[in-house]
Amino acid sequence: MSELISSSIAEGSGNLDLEKIFRWFDLTEEDRACTVELGELTDDVGEHIIEAFYAHLLNDETAARHFRDDAHIAQVKRGQMRYFRELVSADLNDAYVADRRRIGSIHERTGVTPTLYIGSYAYYLNRLAHVVLERMDEDPHKAFHLVMSLFKIAHFDMSLALETYVDAREEAIQARERELSELPTPVLQLRPGLLLIPVVGTLDSHRARALTVQLLEGIQEHRASAVVLDITGVAAVDSAVANHLIQTMAAARLMGALSVLTGLSAEVAQSLVKVGVTGEALNTAGDLQRGIEMAEQLLKD
């Protein structure tokens, strides 16, 4: 799953229109030059800031929980050092974007929240800005300019990571939805000619379509004369799905099978009435037992 996510992210980054994004962030060649200059100026303090940064980080209980032991901290510190060297080297190409997104996805998976991420970033930038100002106190105007350029790149950088957060979350939600919609709806044969289809869970239009196909093919396969569709386990249906259920039962009749709908909750009954179904064209029964009795009665007639 994680490979899947990172590979899809790597693919996605190829489609990014970097030039357009730079324009949006007002990120010019000049800014990049400034940042490189800044990098030379602050290269020796990077380690110092990171030390301070980690002291700050480990003070926070939530943040500290992300680290297993000292070796882990040392490893992450090295990664951090590289991260900021790359930031100020300002070599912003597709590979850079892919790398940032990869890091973002690691953060997302290990549970580093956006708040933690941006807070840490802000702390680092703040410290760095102070160092720059101290070192260039003879030309504060220039110093301000350098720091602003760095901020632009940093914001660009953060946006990459946050996009990854959103993408990963989206991916997770979609996977969940796929799982739900693939929940099988069994077609059970109660006795020769009589099928029971219990529907449990959310009935969205995607699943309703799958249900239709299963029901109609089940009629053919089992040579069924009657189908009991039990929707006790369905909390709510929207009007589109309600319509779909009605159509499915009409299609079943065209194939020569009677259908009985059972287990309508109060909400479902109300939404059926709203789409104009009054039950005249439908065989409905209050509960499954009565539904089966009704189907057997219909078969006898």
């Binding site: 239709t212 196909v213 109609l216 053919q220 159509q247 499915t248 299609a251 079943a252 065209l254 194939m255």
Partner: peptide
Amino acid sequence: IVGIQPDVALSMV
């Protein structure tokens, strides 16, 4: 009418 296939039944509906 006999033997209406699933796909046909659905499109008729």
